[in-house]
């Protein structure tokens, strides 16, 4: 049965029918405030979908809905065809999440943090395997056994990626992961995402960073006031056009030099 499921996943992936992340007509309100309005969104395996938008556009609400932390007023949300509202715990088997400020446990080393989080996901690895995941995530070897209290944000993000790798995650949710990173660290992080994408992981990333989005994403959606205003396939739009569209949607006036 499991073999059949894997076969179907591969087939679906190849034919692009199979979606790992699905939001179908999702509405979410907080009192009179409509945080999300009829959101329809899909992410397939091997895709990086970047949600662009200003603060309050509904990006984080979308991620929280996918994590099952909040429930929609209407609509359906699924991860790997598992209804999140009905089986939140089961759907989490397939996803990993990296928030804007990934803190982890400051008094534990990178290996210990990874060991604990993989244990939470029901997996157990030896020291060598844990080090390999950290290595794959791009963390310097000399940092493996150092406490996270001494880590920069970029280094912590790499541990977060190692956690996702150790979990063999199918879906990765990222909330402003590059905010506060220096350009080098941001670029390294982008490369890691591409690496995961090539492994077939479906990635949904909420970000303000239009340039990083253009660099890593396969698809980009622009959100405003809870609505998905535009969706693009990244390779079909230039950075200039993307920027211009984004600014137009946001009603930002460009600074003429």
């Amino acid at each position: 049965m499991e073999m059949l499921h894997i076969h179907c996943m591969k087939l679906s992936c190849a034919t692009s029918f199979y979606t790992m992340i699905t939001l179908d007509n999702v509405n979410k309100s907080y009192g009179d405030f409509k945080a999300l309005k009829n959101l329809n969104l899909t992410v397939k395996p091997g895709e990086i979908y970047c949600l662009l938008g200003a603060n309050g556009a509904g990006k984080t609400t979308t991620i929280n809905l996918l994590l099952g932390f909040i429930t929609p007023n209407t609509g359906t949300i699924s991860i790997n065809n598992i209804n999140v509202q009905k089986s939140a715990l089961k759907s989490k088997q397939y996803l990993a999440y990296i928030p804007e400020n990934l803190m982890l446990y400051p008094n534990l080393t990178a290996v210990e943090n990874l060991n604990y989080f993989s244990g939470i996901g029901g997996k157990s690895f030896g020291k060598k395997a844990l080090e390999t995941f950290l290595d794959d995530a791009g963390l310097q070897r000399e940092a493996f056994h150092k406490r996270l209290s001494k880590f920069s944000k970029g280094m912590r993000q790499k541990v977060g990626i190692a956690i996702a790798l150790a979990k063999d995650t199918k879906v990765l949710l990222l909330d402003e992961p590059t905010s506060g990173l220096d350009p080098k660290a941001s670029n390294e992080f982008g490369q890691l995402l591409k690496h995961l994408k090539n492994k077939g992981v479906a990635i949904l990333m909420a970000t303000h960073d239009i340039f990083r989005a253009k660099d890593v994403a396969t698809h980009i959606g622009i959100m405003k006031e809870g609505e998905l205003k535009y969706e693009f396939e990244t390779d079909k739009i230039s950075l200039a056009a993307l920027e211009s569209t984004y600014l137009k949607i946001m009603d930002y006036k460009t600074l003429e030099v």
Partner: peptide, 14 residues
């Protein structure tokens, strides 16, 4: 405060 509870819950921790 560290945000790890959020992370644990998102990892499907019981």
């Amino acid at each position: 405060e560290q945000g790890t509870l959020f992370l644990l819950k998102s990892s499907g921790a019981s």
